[in-house]
Simulated scan of single mutants.
Amino acid sequence: MENTSTPVSTTSFGLRYGLLTGIVSVIYSFILLAANMEQNTALSLLSLVILVGGIFLAHKKYKENNSGFMSYGQGLGIGTLVSLISGLLGGIFRYVYMEFIDPSAAQRTIEQTRAKMEEAGNMSDAQIDQAIQMSQRFASGPLGIAVAIIGSAFIGFLITLIIAAITKHNRPEFE
C-alpha cells in the first residue's frame, strides 16, 4: 500500500512554534521586567518551562500531521529551530526594551548583579567591576542579540536532545 499523504515540513513546524514560543516568552519577559522581577531565579527558570512546552507542542503537532511518526533527527531539528526563533525574538525584545522602553532596567540589573557578587564575597571590587564591564559588552546592542540567539539555540539544543528522545516515534521499516 502506497502512502499518498503529502509530507509535512519540519521547518514549517519549527518556524511556527518558534514564533509562538517566542511571543509567549516575550510577554513573560515583559511582565518580569515591568515588575522588576527578572533577577528572581525561580521566575526566570519558568522561561525554560515555556521553551520546553513549545518544543514538546511542536513535536506533538508534527506527529499529528505526519501519521503519528517523527524520527529523532526530525525532532532535534524542530526543537533547535523553535529555540533559535524564540531566542531571536527574545533577544530583539530585550534590546528594544533596554534601549528604548526602560533604559533604567539595565542599570537596575547591573546594581542587583553587583550586590549579589559582593554578597558572595569571593571577588574583589576590581574583579567585580571587570566582570560587570564584560557582561555589559555581551548583553547590550547587536552583540547582545547575537548572544541571546546563540545561547537560546545552544540551551534549546541540549533540551531538545532529551525531548526528542522521549517524543520520537519512528516509522516501521517494513511498512
Rank of each mutant, 00 (worst) to 15 (best):
M123K: 13
T109D: 12
A131G: 10
A105C: 06
A126D: 07
D129R: 11
E111Y: 01
I110Q: 13
Q130A: 14
I132R: 03
R114I: 00
Q107D: 09
A120T: 12
I128W: 03
Q130I: 10
M117I: 03
I110M: 10
T109R: 15
K116Y: 11
G121V: 03
K116C: 12
R108L: 04
Q107V: 03
T109G: 12
E118N: 14
D129K: 13
Q112W: 02
A126E: 09
Q130L: 15
T113Q: 04
A126Y: 15
P103T: 00
D125N: 08
A131T: 09
A131P: 06
N122L: 10
E111A: 07
Q107E: 12
G121E: 14
A120K: 05
I110K: 06
I110F: 04
T109H: 14
N122F: 10
A126N: 07
A120W: 14
A115C: 12
A105H: 02
E119T: 04
S104T: 03
A131H: 06
I128M: 02
Q130T: 15
Q112C: 12
A131M: 15
S104L: 04
A106L: 11
I132F: 05
R108N: 07
M117R: 07
Q107M: 10
N122H: 14
P103D: 01
T113I: 04
A115Q: 09
Q112L: 09
I132M: 05
E111L: 02
T109C: 10
R114Q: 01
Q112V: 04
N122W: 09
D125P: 14
Q112I: 08
E118D: 09
Q127P: 15
Q127M: 06
E118R: 14
P103R: 00
A105M: 01
E111W: 02
Q127W: 01
E118P: 04
A106S: 07
G121Y: 02
A105S: 09
I132C: 08
N122V: 14
I110P: 01
T113F: 06
P103K: 00
A115V: 05
A106T: 05
G121F: 02
R114F: 00
D125L: 13
K116W: 05
P103G: 01
T109A: 09
S124E: 02
R108M: 08
R108Q: 06
S124H: 08
